[in-house]
Design a protein around this nucleic acid. Structure first.
Lengths: 235, 235
DNA sequence: CGGACGATTGATTATAGTCAAGTACTGTGG
DNA sequence: CCACAGTACTTGACTATAATCAATCGTCCG
């Protein structure tokens, strides 16, 4: 069964944790990982307030993380695609502050955090890689901060599309045609927009020839104009 | 000179890095720290694209971090008060992606990162604390994400004020009366608002008896209503 | 003292949200 | 296989919130 594959044989090893570990030490990492946990669409990987035990590498499918405000409204805080690490919130509190839910049928590799810490002490490159992963997460949050605080709804959607495209490419897939794993509602929530706005912008981007979109299938037709200036002030 | 004080004698040791280190090992941490770097108002601690060499503990004063978008507009990404660690972006890229600038006369302790990594391998609690610090930064970014994506201008300002108040308290200062180290422009920029909006809300909050404000001096008069529901729909 | 910057206030406008309605999908059970 | 329910998505009309434009005042420095 594919889920039992070792890191050695995993197609994602070049973008996942193993990239930080010498082949000679990969066995050590391999041994602490619990592989192939399967999640059905809508199932939770963990919930807010669950005790923090592990971080998870997405092997297939996609997840979203979200938090609840006091008044019960959901805030989607991130989307996680294969090769990406989810669950790094919670280290400081020892319990998760957000929930992680499968957007579609998914499998994850579970990496118990105390083991990972122990191993990181012994493998400097792993420690560095983990610092690095968290640092990148902070960087991405800063980019999102700018997106939400300075950019128009159009820019936000364009940025989401190109970001997803880039992450697809990282896994060796097309950066032009892909399927969004999340609903319009999740997109709207994540980007701080109303669903209706998201829908309208998808439609307009298509009319402007920037993308072709059919449900969750997206094709990027004019990347320069989508990313850049072209779209600003009447595209 | 106060700046030459060791971590042992530093009044901030209970909220800064030393809290993670046994007294017996504090010397080791102490030795790698370059203390008392002074910054005048407006001076940079580092700039975007500078090579990443160290993280910094704020000893006195206050700093802001900011990034520039391609089109040259500034995005304030954070404010850093005494006892807080600045500069953890940049680990993954080996160069800083944002700039850090003193909002007022400040001093910082410089902690060379490669030394910190080495030491972290030997002191598990320090490694854990550092993971923890980064995790908390991620948590705070998530809270900010919700603030920017779901909350009104009023909520954003209220949240900033109470957050600053809490951080003051952490250092043993009043959580009721304090001086904002940053300009209205920085506040507006950070919260994704126009300066005019910030100004108007400060004025209105004062008229509503929630705060007393005079320039950068702020007194919180009615915390419950400021934080909570009271303000919603006509306070 | 003057200039620049920071802050405030007012008038107007633009962007995205809300409300409302309706269509298209998806999966389920008959 | 189809009917149905429920959800996801789209579109239109109207509205509210905060942005922009503009003017003024205060104050900190050089």
């Amino acid at each position: 069964m594919a889920a039992r594959v070792s890191c050695n044989d995993c197609s994602l090893s070049q973008i996942c944790l193993p990239l930080a570990v010498e082949p000679a030490q990969l066995d050590e990492l391999d041994r602490i990982i619990r592989r192939g946990r399967a999640l059905k669409r809508g199932e939770h990987l963990y919930r807010a307030a669950d005790s923090f035990e592990a971080v998870y590498a997405v092997r297939s499918g996609a997840l979203k993380t979200y938090a609840m405000s006091e008044d019960g409204e959901e805030q989607v805080t991130g989307f996680y695609l294969p090769g990406e690490i989810v669950g790094m919130d919670g280290i400081s509190t020892a319990y998760h502050i957000s929930s992680a839910k499968a957007l579609e049928t998914s499998t994850v590799c579970e990496i118990p955090f105390t083991h990972l810490e122990t191993l990181s002490s012994r493998i400097p490159s792993l420690q560095h890689h983990f610092f690095s992963l968290m640092s990148r997460e902070i960087q991405e949050d800063r980019a999102l901060h700018m997106l939400l605080s300075k950019k128009s709804a159009d820019d936000r959607i364009a940025s989401l599309l190109t970001t997803i495209a880039a992450r697809q490419q990282r896994r060796g897939l097309s950066n032009r045609i892909f399927r969004l794993p999340m609903s319009r509602y999740d997109i709207a929530n994540y980007l701080g927009l109303a669903v209706e706005t998201v829908s309208r912008i998808f439609t307009r981007f298509q009319q402007q020839g920037l993308i072709r979109v059919e449900g969750r299938e997206v094709e990027i037709l004019d990347r320069p104009r989508l990313c850049g200036e072209g779209r600003l002030h009447a595209g």
